[in-house]
Each structure stands twice: as C-alpha cells, then as structure tokens.
Design a protein around this nucleic acid. Structure first.
Ligand SMILES: [Mn+2]
Ligand SMILES: [Mn+2]
Ligand SMILES: [Mn+2]
Ligand SMILES: [Mn+2]
Lengths: 224, 224
DNA sequence: TTTGTACTTTAGCCCCGTCTAAATTCTTCA
DNA sequence: TGAAGAATTTAGACGGGGCTAAAGTACAAA
C-alpha cells in the first residue's frame, strides 16, 4: 500500500513515457528518462511486476496495471499541487520548482495533499499548464495543439509547454511567452521552419521551429 | 555538505538528548529515541565520526561537533517551520503535525525554507511553543519553568510542552489547556502531587503531578 | 581487588537500489 | 535463413542502513 521513493519515481516515468509514446515502454527509455542504467531498470521492473504494479514480459517492455497507473497519477497530482504551492504561495518562478516538487511529491500523508489542494483552491492546472488529477486520479486533457501545427492567422492562446527544462522556460520568459499569452502566426519561414508570431499587441517575434514544437496552444474564436 | 535522511535524524536525536540530559550522549539513549538497536547506532556513529559531525570515543558516548550541532539546529528549524505551516496554513491541529514534519524537514533546498519562513512571517515559536532557530542556527530559549515548580497563586501563562505525544496533546485540548492560556495554581494535593488550577476565568480543573511536570509556564506580573 | 552485570561493540547477515561486465534474446537485413 | 547488431537481462559486486548473536568493556558492589 505504501511504496518507496524509487518505486514511485519508476511508476511515474513509465506513466509519462506511455503517455507520450504509447505502450509497451522499453527498458532503455526508462533508463534514459531516469538517468540510470538499463540493468538497474530491469532489476526494478522485476520488483514492480512482483507487486503487480506493471505487466512485464522479459525483452518486451512494460505497461502499468490499473493499480500502477493509479499510483502514478496520484504521484503526479502531488507533484503538480506542490508546484502550484511553490509558485503561487512562495513566489518561485516556473523554472525553479521542478526539483523541489520532485522531492515533495514523496511525502506520505493521506490528508496533507487534500488539505493542500483546498488551500490552493483546487487548481486544475499546474504552473506549466499541465492538468492536475483529482483525488480519485481522474483529470481531463486540456484541448491543445502544437504551435507548430497552428494555421496562419489563427488566433490562439499559449496553454502549455512540452519541454520543462529550466533553460527553455527562462528563454520563454525572456520572450514574454507566458501561459495565457494570446498569439497568432504571421509567417512560417520555409527555409528552416522558424515561426514569426504576433504576441498580444506587441511587436512580432521570431522563434525557431524547434521551439514552436514545444509549445501547446488552444485556438480561440476568429473574432476574439 | 549534504547528508542522508538517516544521518540527519541521528544528528537531531543526539542534539535533543544532549539538550535535555547533557553530554556525552549514550548509544542506548539514541537507540531508544530512534527506535532502533544499539548495534545499528554504533554503526552510524562511526560514519558520523568519520564525517566529523560528532566526537566519538568507543564505549564513552558522543557529542556533536560545531558542524554537527549546526546541522542539527538547521534540521530543527525546518521541522518547526513546517509544523507552523501545517497548523497555521493548512489547519492541522498540533497533535497531527509531527509525523509529517518529520518527513518535510528533509527536503533539500537552499531557498525553500527561507521563503517558507518569510511566508509564515518569521515565526519565533512552533505550534508546541518550541523556539525556531534563525537561518544561522541561533535561537533564544524562552523563559520558562515547569508548572510543577510554579508557586501557589502565581499568575502564569502556558508557553510550552515537554511531552509531544498525540495522546498527551489531545488530553490538553480536552482540558482547554492551550498555549497562551493564563492559569494559577490554587492547590497542590499533598497525597499524590495533583494540582488544582484556575484556567483563565473558568472553573478550576485538576491535573496530575505527572501532567504538571510536562507543562512549561512563564510567570506573569502579580497585577496582570 | 575481584567479579557480576549492564552497556557497547563486533561479526556476520539481510534488503534496497545501483553499477559493470558478460551473456542472452530479438530483429533486421543480406 | 542466418548472422550481425542492438536491446535486454543476468551475474556479481558495492554502499547505505538495518538486524541478531556473540564478544568485549566499564563500573559498581562485594
Ligand atoms: Mn520524485
Ligand atoms: Mn509541472
Ligand atoms: Mn526526520
Ligand atoms: Mn514541534
């Protein structure tokens, strides 16, 4: 019923890889995300399989069981709620909170996280725009597309980031690319796929195609 | 520069025992407080001595070095600030917070705890009346005596508890014995040392000598 | 001064989570 | 279809932190 820090982090890693690349999840993908060796991953996979948190067939990758998936989403819930706390209450910026939340998410207390949720007034999204599962583990995906897939002159709002590295988030800050910003693609440069944007009512800015593929936007009504 | 959870808890235990019973601190005292075996304590003492966090001579107990004591007080600072957060912001009661703070105190972040301190408006005492060290590790002891040592008809205020067990704190709640309560000893029963108190302006209550020896009070002016 | 007893340490073991090196299995392509 | 070559697992080790049982030390009482 209660899992170790390492077990929790593995479950979360498997969940995130499955979410992005589908199932089954390979040993090497887990090793890369967790910065460990594949041999270490194999060891842990056996333990998680013994506890029926994953379905594991040697040489064929893993997927989470219902129990494992539930545990992973509860951990993600805790991670994201703590990030909200750090940003909204303690004044951290969105590029500073990940490492701390990576620790805080493992605090074991049945009531703590629900009280924190109430204290924060039940936020639905974390500082990076990621949805926060409720106490039962359920959440709805926000409607979103990649900025790189947004049509020309389609008004849209920045709602999330695919990349969470500090350096990337700081780059966004420097270019006034904050969540909630309204934008519109003015031009896509054919040579390298760079994108020229109108941001709010300011001067147009230019971002690389690389960056455009890391930003999630929601289209707004034409007339907005 | 950064210590494991177990190392931190051992340093804190040594600090607390030394504070209450003086130095050197015995292996068995540590084992009892930490709920482990003396053999395990001996193993850890060797490691802490290697890292120069304690002075250790086989068979003769330990004391903290300057570095060790500093580390212990910083841990206590974190523990007590988190307890304030849990009580003041999340609405926990003082008997529910110890276990959670026991985990939260180990979160590693240079800035987190200082921001938390500011967010809580730099409290000087935790929910149990214990002083909170500042960022440099310094704190002043509150003036206090045991209720069992308070003279008859001396007006006083309840400022701290020596015992932190949930059952004890709940007992205090049930008898309206909260920190800050004004009180006065009306009578000490000679047979078993029980104490009759006037609490605020309510009816007198009777507490055992056992309980009276767990409560810290500060005398107030006669005219108060 | 000796000795009994309580306290402490050592020896040897265990589990967790990680690693390297070697062996195994899968897959792809000639 | 039969190797390479890549991915994965196994074998064996290690450090951290804990335990039991046995041995060593200190100290108080005789
Ligand atoms: Mn984590
Ligand atoms: Mn996030
Ligand atoms: Mn602790
Ligand atoms: Mn406290």
């Amino acid at each position: 019923m209660t899992y170790t820090l390492a077990e929790e982090d593995y479950l979360k890693a498997i969940y995130k890889i499955a979410e992005r690349h589908g199932t089954p999840v390979s040993t090497s993908a887990i090793a890369e995300l967790m910065q460990t060796r594949p041999a270490s991953v194999t060891d842990m996979l056996k333990k998680l399989a013994d506890k029926e948190l994953i379905d594991y067939k040697r040489y064929h990758g893993v997927s989470l069981t219902r129990t494992g998936a539930r545990q992973a989403t509860l951990l993600i819930r805790k991670h994201r709620l703590w990030e909200c706390f750090l940003v909204d209450k303690l004044g951290f910026s969105w590029d500073e909170v990940h490492e701390i939340a990576e620790q805080l998410e493992h605090i074991q207390s049945d009531t703590l996280i629900d009280r924190l949720d109430d204290y924060l007034e039940n936020p639905k999204f974390d500082p990076h725009g990621d949805p926060i599962p409720d106490a039962s583990g359920a959440y709805r995906m926000r409607y979103q597309i990649l900025l790189s897939d947004l049509g020309l002159h389609q008004p849209a709002v920045l709602v999330g980031v695919r990349e969470h590295a500090s350096s990337f988030l700081q780059y966004l800050d420097q270019n006034r690319l904050a969540l909630g910003a309204t934008l519109e693609v003015i031009e896509v440069l054919p040579y390298d796929g760079s994108v020229r944007l109108r941001l709010g009512d300011g001067e147009p800015i230019l971002i690389s195609g690389q960056v455009a593929r890391q930003l999630y936007v929601r289209q707004t009504t034409e007339s907005a």
